[in-house]
Amino acid sequence: MLTMEFLFPVLTVGLLVCCAMCLYRIANGPLGSDRMVAIDILGTVVVGFVAIITAVSGKVYLLDVALVWALVSFAGTLALAKYLVGKRLNE
């Protein structure tokens, strides 16, 4: 189908632009917390990326990768948030 062959590269490029914007914010976020937010969003974008790869390749087990990626990204963000608080507060 023409639309499929045309559209998937476009979708992939769109998600790559998302990743590029997140990397821009990671590279020169003015504060540490901006970088952490960008890392969090990058994890969510990657979950969407894995979903598209699943549709293209038709291999359903890749959705397990998306699931585990969401959980690991969540744990990483919580650790970063703890670190951010610990810099100023002794909790």
């Binding site: 504060l31 917390s33 990204s73 963000t77 948030a81 951010l84 100023r88």
Partner: peptide
Amino acid sequence: LCIAFVLITSSTAAHALSRAAHRSGV
């Protein structure tokens, strides 16, 4: 399952990040 996890974890992570940012004086 993936959708449920993404919805729950991202809102919790946003809550944790914003609270940490406010507490650290941003």
